[in-house]
Amino acid sequence: MHIPDGYLSPETYIAGYAVAVPLLAYSVRKLKKELNENSLPLVATLTALSFLVMMINVPIPGGTSGHAIGTAVISILFNPWIAFLSLSIVLLIQALVFGDGGITAWAIASLGMGFLAAFTASFIYKLFYRLNKNIALFLAGWFSIVVASLFVAVVLGIQPMIAHDEKGNPLFFPFDLKITIPAIVGSHMLYFGVIEGIYTLTVFKFLEKINSQVFSDVSKEA
């Protein structure tokens, strides 16, 4: 889902920036209210963890690979706005320092893996929390990355419609929705969603166990 430079038409990535930047500005304001001496180290650690887990590429059948993103657990432990900001920082560092994902595509990536994944996780967790907390955690992870993948698949899949030359050759990402949706969303439903679900559940449980003190301070707000 790390869209490289050159895959998105300027119409798309400018629109992405126009939506993402105001939302990010708002998330910084949100963060100011909620962060304190206790929560800041945890947010920083979970953000770093998100960066590390994205380095662990898992090969899947069909000759591709992918990884968890770690958005859901931040969203559930804190709130979706903080998870959105955390992921945006990770994606910015990946784009600028490592060339993993393009800088033009950064806003779109951050809307997908940050904003949409975070709000989906929070919504799903609240929906299933009463039923069973473990199932809710797993599903929050699963849905968060699947929704993000759907967003990326749609944004990529509409590129051939948005921009092509006189001969009809695409100028940017060349494959349409019929290809991107099954390829991207399908693999996330089958594999990466499951990985994200397990990651969300494991990290949450682990934090609960080793750091019940820090945890109890923040979980009240969740």
């Binding site: 889902m1 790390h2 869209i3 895959y7 380095m55 662990i56 590429n57 898992v58 090969p59 000759g63 591709t64 690979s65 992918g66 990884h67 990529l156 990402f173 991107t180 390829a183 991207i184 693999s187």
Partner: peptide
Amino acid sequence: VGLLSEYPAWG
């Protein structure tokens, strides 16, 4: 472990 896969992510 992330280096084991020789294939990139789709796209």
